[in-house]
Design a protein around this nucleic acid. Structure first.
Lengths: 186, 186
DNA sequence: TAGCGTTGCCAACAAGCGTTGACCAACAGT
DNA sequence: ACTGTTGGTCAACGCTTGTTGGCAACGCTA
């Protein structure tokens, strides 16, 4: 049983501020002081509730991607569905952007990205690709394209990538992902 | 006329150490003190020769991608050629990895990545895509796939991406890039 | 109303950062 | 041999960082 503590609001405020700062500044430049200021409390509270900076990041990047029911969908459209879903997920909050930014300079962050993508797109690949043995390869290819678009659109902000509509991106990347998943090995 | 200074060796040592540190640690964690230690000199020399940390990074990321003669090649294989070339370039030294790592947390670094990719794959796209007006979009799509693979392989180090051979990667990504460049808009 | 755990602020710590200026040794030109 | 320039070190500066411990106010329970 998990009782409701009086400090739950503060804890949530800290997490929200942390996610924003990690997403926009990366791990090193997102200082505990700035996060505490955003949350309207003292820096020492962050330490009390999350131990240290690493613990704070671990808590802030605790998420569920929540891929939809993969098996029920027609295997023909799996590429477009995957791209759509990740695009939605990326734009719904800042957690994924934070993870990507942190993953580039921080060991724990990289592990987090690795784990999430392996656990989320790995099974999908295993389900639909011709030879289950190279499912990891397929998953990595898919991840490279999805992470690359996220990098270009949300982190580096290449103007054409930012201006494209979600539909356009799905129309372009969908077939790529589809091929990475279902085509015969070249 | 550029005379040869006695300190050129030191300057070069600093640049090499800086590129290594920026590539493996990112902008913030690559400290001037550590770079100077690697180069075997005093931190103050770095300041004397490059002004400040930003100047050092600017000097360390001064590179030429040097795309081969794009027009002379058959437009049918442009995708594979592009992927091969970038893969080579990425593995030949640490400058591109450094730029990618820094570009994620540093404003100037992001601008650098943006500029290099716009100036290098932009013209290629303008030369081969059906409608020159959406060449920037094509270039951004190509960049997203190439940067994404670099991210997965050299920064995040997803195991399958690291283990794939260069030929395999070209065989998979080549057609993608080819399609982004030459296919009719979907 | 007394006691106690919780919530929060404040002040400070040690360490590390980028950066600066004074100072010394070796060289080059006259 | 004298002098100005260059290559380099040393010690320190002001500042920010993550982190810590003490202390005041609050709310609950008896």
């Amino acid at each position: 049983m998990t009782t409701v503590r009086r400090s739950d609001a503060t804890r949530a405020a800290i997490l929200e501020a942390a996610r924003e700062r990690f997403a926009s500044d990366g791990y090193e430049r997102a200082t505990i002081r700035a996060i505490a200021r955003d949350a309207g409390i003292d820096p020492s509270m962050v330490m009390r509730y999350y131990g240290n900076k690493e613990g704070l990041f671990a808590a802030a990047s605790e998420i569920e991607i929540g891929l939809p029911d993969l098996g029920a969908l027609p295997a023909r459209h799996i590429g477009a569905v995957l791209v759509t879903h990740f695009l939605d997920r990326w734009e719904s909050d800042e957690v994924l952007t934070a993870m990507l930014r942190v993953g580039v300079t921080n060991e724990a962050g990289a592990a987090r990205v690795q784990e999430i993508f392996a656990r989320q797109v790995g099974p999908v690949a295993r389900g639909v690709c011709p030879d289950p043995e190279d499912a990891p390869r397929r998953a990595a290819l898919v991840s490279s394209q999805i992470l690359g678009m996220a990098l270009a659109r949300y982190v580096l902000c290449l103007p054409p990538a930012v201006e494209m509509s979600a539909e356009e991106i799905v129309a372009w990347l969908g077939p790529t992902v589809q091929r990475y998943l279902t085509a015969e090995a070249p």
